[in-house]
Design a protein around this nucleic acid. Structure first.
Lengths: 256, 256
DNA sequence: CGCAGATTTGAGTTCCATCAAGGCGTGTGG
DNA sequence: CCACACGCCTTGATGGAACTCAAATCTGCG
């Protein structure tokens, strides 16, 4: 049952790199000048976890924090819960990305992470990683670096949710997903959205109906074609133009 | 000109503790079992910076990251910039709080921090702090811990901006500020807002006019009294009730 | 005292959430 | 292979919250 035993043999960093060309574990380690020994040390703390089925929880809000994860295949969503049970999705996780960083240090998860489809992840026990990072100076810096990135991403999301129209929000998210798919070597213009319209809307601070309507508008305007969860960009420049606040009235900030 | 020279002598951790009873530097160090030597080591890397006047920038987006700061007196706002010059305020910083954490690791500031009034801060060169944190195991963990807190706060803000009404947003912010003032030993029910209505609105994703109108509504309902930037809570329970989504229509998430 | 910026107030408009109903698609059982 | 049912998605109609524009008032400051 526990990962790391015979049924779920340890996998090597080498394998992870093969499995996922832009794996965050690579992101975590690559900029660091790791010697052969260091690499092996890292190899040995990585464990493969059970594959998750759609709806399975990787971790729940309030649970003690023990490990961070990197997505090998599939996808996940993380959400925080308001006191009323209404939740707010704060991130989607695609293959090659790290999960659970917001729990570092607090010792406890603040969010619940759930599989959007059949998903396999790779577990990195944090205590061991932290221990290791004391021995490998660059690794410690990498940890801080990645958390910093997380903060930056959150700020970008905030900016989007606080100040942009529904169309801009969706366009920005689609382009963002496009980039992330592209980085994995998949098509940047044609891909499958792993999340429901509901999740999409929740993440962007929109009602699901609005999300649906915006898709229709994009379709009508010839910006993209939508078939269920499959989408294809037909007019990338126009979508990017949307992003740059073409119709966005300059709110707040400064208005002379 | 450079801080740390004779004109601005180094100040000691001891002084900082006196200057600010809930200083984040304490927050940073206190949970760590610091010996006398460690404490002195920290003392020596802390510098007092120039006092800032209203509107002065502590750091700008894009600048190389060199230090984190802790607020001794006054207050600051941090904002990110969209490509159009419209900015989004992501945090207000009151005395005793840390500034610049989002830049750790990226080596570059992602946000611009500006004084809302005459403000004095205390500079902690990061390279030295990092170096020190390799020698003091607990300190490293504290850094991660505090960054994690930052991420958590961002998620809370996102939840507020994405899902709550204008009244709820303002109520939540006012109560939050109340707590933070209270922690410093000031009144929790009567204080001065250091930021403009404009900034208030920007932070909450609202137009300044809306902010003003919500204040009026609160006034009319007898929830608080407002005189310019001075505010006083008159009906704390009612404000807190607002916070708990009483009139908040359960949006998105789940609606049977 | 007068200016500039901040705040408030008003009127009108827009965008999006809500409510409600219908369509599509997938999985299950016959 | 087909029928049915459930959930997800779409579409329509409507109302309301918040934004925009515009102007008056207030505030601080030189």
């Amino acid at each position: 049952m526990t990962p790391g035993d015979d049924a779920y043999p340890r996998i090597r960093l080498y394998d992870i790199r093969k499995a996922c060309s832009t794996c965050s574990l690579r992101e975590l380690c690559l900029p660091v000048a790791l010697g052969r020994e260091d690499t092996e040390a890292l190899d040995h703390i990585v464990e493969r976890d059970h594959p998750l089925r759609k709806g399975d929880k990787l971790c729940r809000s309030g649970q003690p924090f023990a490990a961070i994860y990197t997505v090998l295949s599939g996808s996940l969503k993380s959400s925080t819960q308001g006191e009323n049970g209404e939740d707010q999705i704060i991130a989607f996780h695609l293959p090659g990305e790290l999960v659970g960083l917001d729990a570092i240090g607090a010792g406890r998860h603040h969010s619940t992470t759930e599989a959007l489809e059949t998903t396999s992840v790779c577990k990195i026990p944090f205590s061991r990683l932290e221990e290791l990072s004391r021995q490998i100076p660059g690794l410690q810096h990498q940890l801080l670096r990645i958390m910093s990135k997380e903060i930056f991403d959150d700020h970008e999301l905030l900016q989007v949710v606080a100040r942009r129209s529904a169309e801009q929000r969706l366009a920005i998210l689609l382009l963002n997903l496009s980039q992330r798919f592209g980085r994995r070597g998949l098509s940047r213009t044609r891909f499958r959205l792993p999340m429901s319209r509901h999740d999409l809307g929740n993440y962007l601070g929109l009602a699901p109906e609005t999300t649906s309507r915006v898709f229709r508008r994009f379709l009508t305007q010839g910006l993209l074609s939508v078939t269920g969860k499959e989408i294809e960009f037909l007019d990338l420049p126009a979508l990017q133009a949307l992003t740059e606040s073409p119709s966005a009235p300059p709110r707040s900030s400064k208005q002379g």
